[in-house]
Nucleic acid binder design. Structure first.
Lengths: 192, 192
DNA sequence: CGATTCTTTGAAAACAGTCAATCTGTGTGG
DNA sequence: CCACACAGATTGACTGTTTTCAAAGAATCG
């Protein structure tokens, strides 16, 4: 529902009726069933996707054919492939739904148009990019400095609301460890 | 030298004489000797730093007191602590010079001012942030999906010009592996 | 309820980390 | 200019962690 999206935005900055109207006009609501793809590797990603319901996961496939989870995107998150979006090259990411979900899609040209029309939205979009960048730096630090158990603890601290909605083996994949190692790390934690 | 910086910018987009002047006015050139800090953890980082000469390394210190290299910044790169810059909180990063170096510093307020005055510069700054974000995503993918040897190969492919300028144990730290493991991985590679 | 997916557990193997010693090259002070 | 100190790299032996493979339980879904 577009209403969810507008509510999310108005929680960040005020909108006039005209602006709300303008935004609503460019929004396309799309339902995505569990296991269905929102984006497949190789396709061009040229839109913005706001998750209004459900949860998505993005992942890459390496040379050996193994999947590696990049991100989990529940309600009120944005998903997509920034690499493809910014550089206009084929996506390296796959994105699929882990639950029956719903996204608000805004085509890139439409988005650029409304950013110009609504400066507060442009500011917000910039802040979002900045925050995402800083978050990715924190994740890198965690990946190069932590043991398997520490990585998991960091994960549950950062994303407490996600743990119970996604399979553990995907969390393991996100952390760069095997599902068995994660299972054992969890075991160690309860024993302490 | 500010001239290097202006040359770097003009390589990306054209500048009028007035704009060049405007930029030069806000630039502060600073020499940083080898081993000297540009930024220390806990300080507030509220400037933009362009490396005009030499090379820097930024690193974080974890709970156990171990250093973890975050980035190497040679000539024509930007360095700093984005987390501190954007959120205006104390820096988590330390930055020091690995060679006698020189940076161009622009205070945050000055920078914001010239971004408004020079739209092409603002566009460029935005693109820079986008690219940095995408690059950090690629690094995350490498960290969660590769073995020690693969990480090193990825590193030399991505930063061929840096390998011979920084000590190996810092590259190991950047990759999240021990210096001994890197040494052995290099050995394996020449044998193949 | 049956099928599938997910998690757990065990044992073995591969991998990476640690510690200590040696080797190398560089730079500094006498 | 040499000698020495020092930082960095390598090597070996050992330890510890993580992966892999296989199998068995548990949970979920149609």
């Amino acid at each position: 529902m577009v209403a969810n999206f507008l509510k999310y935005l108005e929680d960040k900055f005020p909108l006039t009726d005209a602006e709300r109207e303008l935004i609503a006009e460019v929004c396309v609501v799309k339902k995505i069933r569990k296991r269905q793809y929102l984006l497949q590797e190789g396709d061009l990603w040229q839109k913005n996707a706001f998750v209004s319901k459900g949860i998505f996961r993005s992942y890459r496939v390496d040379d050996k054919g193994h999947e590696h989870v990049f991100q989990f995107c529940p309600e009120n998150w944005w998903t997509g492939d920034p690499g493809s979006y910014f550089s206009e090259k084929p996506a390296k990411l796959n994105i699929d739904a882990l639950e029956d979900s719903e996204v608000i899609l805004i085509a890139k040209e439409d988005y650029q148009r409304i950013l110009k029309a609504i400066p507060a939205l442009a500011d917000f979009a910039k802040t979002l990019l900045e925050r995402s960048f800083v978050a990715s730096q924190d994740r890198i630090h965690c990946l190069i400095s932590s043991t398997a158990e520490e990585k998991y603890q960091e994960f549950i601290k950062t994303y407490p609301n996600i743990i119970n909605r996604v399979p553990q083996h995907m969390i393991a994949s996100y952390l760069g460890i095997s599902p068995e190692t994660l299972s054992r790390a969890r075991n160690m934690m309860v024993k302490k």
